[in-house]
Structures are given as structure tokens and as C-alpha cells.
């Protein structure tokens, strides 16, 4: 579980996060949604420790991030997996080397143990036949799956995904969403996903935090997002004609 309390972050005097508080639940896919520029990526980078908040507190399973020592930060980082928007795979390494990389750098397992563990995860994301290929030799969807495999190979307690299905076709996007949700349940991870894709919201949005202009505008789940009258949320969702029709059907039901 991750709890954030009154997180403020500003850049050059411009406030990007304005006192956000919420809780991301363990074993659930927690979505952070909002328009571009709403502060989603900054919030994710604050949670990852890449940006320090100007004020507020983050708790990882009730341990305050700001009161942790450098050693504790290092330990915490090893419990975090991250799937970047562009996958961020190492170009010069094959699929299996990318997945092995965090283990080789951070653990003292034997090479055979590491290869076993990496191949098990690669198998889990259905890429075993592509394990010796370079990232440039596989499709965008496969690259995302490699990124997910690399993020979970160390069995993290927390998984962060920054727009994991951006640039993917709808079918592949659903595969990626479902894979993240399945792994979240399987490994009992606290997963936080940045997205502005309504398909993801409907598919895996077990808890949803809606941001607008750096503020928490709404909080709920995919079960009640269509019922809300919150203007910011309805503006966001029903900018698409498809979802206007979906809402009509949903309310009629």
C-alpha cells in the first residue's frame, strides 16, 4: 500500500501538484487519470523518488519516505518496478539480457539461477521465442511486455506504469492492461498506472484517481465513474462520442 498526504510540487514557481492525498491499494490496479499536463507524470516521478516534493509525505506500507535513510531508500528502490512510456529498454541488450539486467546489477544469485528466473518471467509474458532478439527487432507491444517482465523480475512490492499502452493498437493495449492486472494479483503488488486511455479505465481501473490542473478532482473506481456528476470527470470522459453512447446505455441498464 502507498499513501500520499498533501503532496505539493512546483517548478520555477509554477505549482504542478497542489496538495494531493490518496491511497494506492495493495493487490489492485490503481489508475491515475487526467488530461495531458494535469500532473500525472510528475506525481509518478515524485512517488519514484525522481522528484522531491516541496511538501507532503509519502508512505510505503506505513514507512515515511522522507524519514528513510539512504540505505533504506536503496532497499526501497529494489522493491520498485517501473514500466516507462517508451519501454526504456537497453538497445544493446537482447530481451533476456534486459530482463536479467536488474538481477545482475543488484543480486548475488548464480548466473544459472538468474537465467531460470528471467526465463520464467519471459515465459509468463509470452515472449520465450523472442528472448534472444534485440529490442529493435520486436514490435512495440512486445517491447512493452519485455519492460513489464524486467519490472517484475525482482518480484517488486510496488509497480509503476507510465501510460503502458500508449502507441499500441486497441487489441494489444488490452493484452498489456490485462497482463499488468494479472501480475498485480499474482504477485500481490501495489500497482499505480498513469493513463488517459478510457479503455484502460474500464478494463482495469479498480481504483481511479482523477487529476485536474494538479488537484485531485475525483476518486472512485470503474464501477462508479459513469455515475458521477463531477464536471471535470464528465468533461474528460465524454469528450468522445463513443463514451457518450456508452453512458446512455449504462444509465438505461
Amino acid at each position: 500500500m502507498i499513501r500520499i498526504e498533501k503532496i505539493h510540487k512546483q517548478f520555477d514557481g509554477t505549482a504542478v501538484l497542489k496538495g494531493i492525498s490518496t491511497e494506492f491499494k495493495k493487490g489492485k490496479t490503481n489508475l491515475v487519470i487526467g488530461q495531458s499536463g494535469s500532473g500525472k507524470t510528475v506525481l509518478l516521478k515524485v512517488l519514484l523518488g525522481l522528484f522531491r516534493p516541496n511538501s507532503g509525505e509519502i508512505y510505503f506500507d506505513n514507512s515515511s519516505f522522507s524519514s528513510m535513510s539512504e540505505d533504506e531508500h536503496r532497499v526501497l528502490r529494489r522493491e520498485i518496478g517501473m514500466v516507462f512510456q517508451g519501454s526504456a529498454l537497453f538497445d544493446s541488450m537482447s530481451v533476456v539480457e534486459n530482463v536479467l539486467f536488474p538481477m545482475r546489477m543488484l543480486t548475488k544469485f548464480s548466473e544459472a539461477e538468474m537465467i531460470d528466473q528471467a526465463e520464467a518471467v519471459i515465459e509468463r509474458v509470452n515472449l520465450i521465442d523472442a528472448r534472444h532478439k534485440l529490442p529493435t527487432e520486436i514490435s512495440g507491444g512486445m517491447q512493452k511486455r519485455v519492460a513489464i517482465a524486467r519490472a517484475v523480475v525482482m518480484r517488486p512490492k510496488y509497480l509503476f506504469c507510465d501510460e503502458p499502452n500508449s502507441g499500441l493498437d486497441p487489441k494489444t493495449a488490452i493484452v498489456i492492461d490485462n497482463l499488468i492486472q494479472e501480475l498485480t494479483k499474482e504477485y500481490d503488488i501495489t500497482t499505480v498506472i498513469n493513463s488517459h486511455d478510457m479503455n484502460s479505465v474500464m478494463e482495469i481501473g479498480e481504483t481511479i484517481l482523477f487529476l485536474k490542473d494538479g488537484n485531485k478532482a475525483w476518486e472512485g473506481s470503474n464501477k462508479n465513474i459513469f455515475k458521477t456528476d463531477n464536471e471535470a470527470v464528465t468533461d474528460f470522459i465524454y469528450s468522445s462520442n463513443l463514451f457518450k453512447k456508452v453512458r446512455k446505455l449504462y444509465l438505461n441498464d
Partner: peptide, 22 residues
């Protein structure tokens, strides 16, 4: 530079690896 723009350096930092050292 390419590692920077493709977030590979961020990936190293998130893994707890000292990217300058690496």
C-alpha cells in the same frame, strides 16, 4: 544522450543503480 531521451537513465535510477557510475 539517447539513453537520456529514451528514459533509459531514469530506468537505471529507478532500479537503484548509480547511473553516472554505470
Amino acid at each position: 544522450g539517447t539513453m537520456r531521451v529514451t528514459e533509459q537513465i531514469d530506468a537505471l535510477e529507478v532500479m537503484g543503480i548509480n547511473s553516472v557510475n554505470f
